[in-house]
Computed example of a mutant assay.
Amino acid sequence: MVVDSRLLRGALQGRLIVSVQAPQGSPMRDPSVIAAMAEASLVNGALGVRLESPEHIGAVRQRCPGALIVGLWKRVYPDSSVYITPGWEEMRAVWAAGADIVAIDATARHRPAGEELACLIERAQRDLKVPLMADVDSLENGLRAAALGCQWVGTTLLGYTEATAELRPPAWELLPVFREQLSPETALICEGGIASADQAVMALEKGADAVVVGTAITGVDLQVAAYVGRMGAGR
């Protein structure tokens, strides 16, 4: 497997990746809008962008040919709560659209159609030769994903799975333990709950190699709704 040097841990040190996404039904979800926000992030110093859906990945790849793209595809299946690039079909589509690294749910939850995480990772490495980012919710799941071959481990799903529903990101307590127990080659990404530049710096201090920020930068829908709601409650 030939891995883009930008994906290696050393190249990630202290860098920002911006998650450029918009919820279903939002006017911001237009591919041209996503691509514009991605370009604005990149020209202002972000190392890369994290994008959802083959359509948006393709739009950004066309507008920003040299962009570092972390790609995923959120799809909901009735037999599983896993939704971030849950299976082979999604993984292949994300890779074909132009992602440099594919983010997958690497928790221990039951996957659609009972597909096993280990089999999915092995197939991706064999047939696509694709670098993977493991979105996890716990130390155990992160270490397992790294052992199975994922190059990046991200704290993306802490607080968003049934087993961690009582927790709230950022994953401050997990980061130093992860850094101590992951191999030196595996990149540790702090994603989830980072709401300020000071918090991003704190994540780096606690052991993260890079930080993913989404809502605080590009989440227009959620940010505006939060302001309006808080101001309305104060009246």
Rank of each mutant, 00 (worst) to 15 (best):
E52G: 10
G58L: 05
G71W: 04
A97S: 07
E55W: 08
V102Y: 00
C64V: 12
A103Y: 04
A108D: 13
P65Y: 01
R92G: 06
A67D: 07
D79C: 06
L72D: 13
E90V: 02
G98L: 05
G71I: 07
V102G: 10
E55T: 12
V102N: 06
V60Y: 06
A99P: 02
I84H: 06
D79A: 11
V70P: 00
A106Q: 04
V82C: 03
A96P: 06
Y77G: 12
I101Y: 03
A93G: 06
L72C: 13
A97Q: 03
R109H: 12
R75G: 11
W95K: 12
R92C: 13
G71F: 01
A99M: 02
A96H: 13
V60A: 09
V60E: 06
P78D: 13
E55S: 11
R75S: 13
W95V: 08
A97L: 06
I57C: 03
M91D: 08
H110Y: 14
A59M: 01
A59C: 00
S81Y: 07
H56S: 11
E52D: 15
C64M: 10
E52W: 10
T85L: 02
R61M: 08
R109N: 14
R61K: 09
P86H: 06
I84Q: 04
E52Y: 12
W73Q: 13
A96C: 11
S81V: 12
G98S: 08
L72M: 15
G66T: 04
Q62C: 10
A106E: 03
E52C: 14
S80H: 01
G66P: 02
C64T: 08
V60P: 04
R75A: 14
H56R: 11
A93T: 01
S53G: 05
M91G: 15
D100Y: 03
E52K: 10
A103Q: 07
G87A: 14
P78W: 10
T107F: 02
P86I: 02
V70K: 01
E89P: 00
R61S: 07
G58V: 05
V82W: 02
D100K: 01
P54G: 11
Y77I: 09
H110L: 15
M91Q: 09
W88M: 09
Q62L: 10
P65K: 02
G71P: 07
D79T: 09
P78I: 08
G66C: 03
Y83H: 15
A97I: 01
I104N: 09
I104V: 15
A93E: 14
W73V: 09
E89K: 14
Q62H: 12
A108Q: 13
S81P: 15
H110K: 15
E89R: 15
E89Q: 15
T85Q: 05
A108I: 10
G87M: 13
E90D: 11
L68K: 00
I104Y: 07
D105T: 03
V70G: 09
R63G: 08
Q62T: 13
S80P: 00
E55R: 12
I104P: 05
D79G: 08
E90W: 00
A96Y: 05
A67E: 10
Q62K: 13
T85F: 05
A97F: 00
V60C: 05
H110W: 12
R63L: 09
S80L: 05
G66E: 14
S81D: 15
R75E: 15
